[in-house]
């Protein structure tokens, strides 16, 4: 375990050195990802000039909703920083045979494949997320109880774990299919569902969609559970969501691990 931490630190250092070598590019990346985020925030502000709440009686008025958005920012920035750049590079590694070099090393391939590149510029969004959370929570009608604050980090970790499992399954699919750009588009579109409170998915179409995205691909638990805990009144019912998030996180890790191992066994390796 210690060794893996040491290796992770080596990766982190190398990526930092690299980012600092191409400083201008790094700064631009920070700026663009911040720009993207502020644009979304501007859109929500615009929406709130026309309504006081997202969905009648859902409790997602302006401040709680921004706490929700902040939670999403924090979780996504962690996933973007640690896992996505590596997973995206995997397509290239499969195409050029770079994965071969990974497989001969005495190290867990999943670890190498999912963490060898760390994108520090993504932390910029996370930092803004933390600030936004503080602002939104301080302006809410009700202050979150200590238990909510205690559960919040744990649930953030669960959210990250659920998304990590999905990333690994995409990686496995990439290994099997060789080339598949639309997989990463799929990732984007899928996580899109996690961006808003689950309550908006109602009605004859929304209901089933909500069920699928909660129990089949637990994407709705990622942001919703931690955001509810911090931004909505904490009640006995909240524990149900907590349990669901923990179980989904564990399942996501285990299933993705199995799928990834199977994919590696069937790896074809590019011909040289």
């Amino acid at each position: 375990m210690n060794r893996y931490l040491a290796i992770l630190l080596t990766f982190a250092r190398a990526c930092l050195v690299r980012d600092m070598t191409f400083r201008a590019n790094f700064l631009l990346e920070c700026v663009t990802s911040l720009g993207w985020m502020s644009m979304n925030l501007a859109f929500y502000l615009l929406v709130f000039t026309y309504t006081a709440e997202i969905g009648k009686g859902t409790g997602w008025s302006k401040e709680p909703f921004f706490a929700f958005v902040a939670t999403g920012l924090i979780i996504n920035s962690i996933v973007q920083a640690f896992f996505m750049p590596s997973a995206e590079e995997l397509t290239e590694m499969v195409r050029t045979g770079g994965l071969d070099a990974v497989l001969v090393q005495p190290l867990d391939a999943q670890f190498l494949v999912s963490m060898h590149r760390i994108d520090f510029s993504s932390f910029a969004n996370g930092a803004v997320g933390v600030g936004l959370l503080a602002w939104a929570v301080s302006r809410m009608d009700h202050a979150p109880p200590p238990v909510a604050w205690a559960l919040y980090p744990l649930l953030i970790v669960c959210g990250v774990a659920i998304l990590y499992g999905l990333v690994i399954m995409l990686a496995a699919a990439t290994i099997l299919m060789g080339r598949n750009q639309s997989l990463y588009d799929f990732w984007f579109y899928l996580t899109n569902f996690s961006r808003y409170p689950a309550e908006i998915y109602s009605g004859p179409w929304g209901g089933p969609l909500r069920m699928i995205c909660t129990f089949v691909i637990p994407i709705l638990l990622v942001v919703n559970v931690p955001a509810r805990v911090i931004a909505q009144p904490f009640t006995g019912e909240s524990w149900g969501g907590v349990a669901a998030a923990v179980i989904a996180a564990a399942a996501s890790l285990v299933v993705s691990r199995i799928v990834f191992q199977r994919a590696l066994a069937r790896y074809r390796s590019a011909s040289s």
Binding site: A14, V17, R18, T21, F22, T96, G97, G98, D100, A101, V104, Q105, P106, S272
Partner: peptide
């Protein structure tokens, strides 16, 4: 096993490119 052997491919770069 993997600790005890090595593979070098002339057409592939296994070193960190930018470092």
């Amino acid at each position: 096993f993997r600790r005890r052997f090595a593979l070098v491919m002339g057409q592939r770069n296994q070193l960190w490119w930018d470092l």
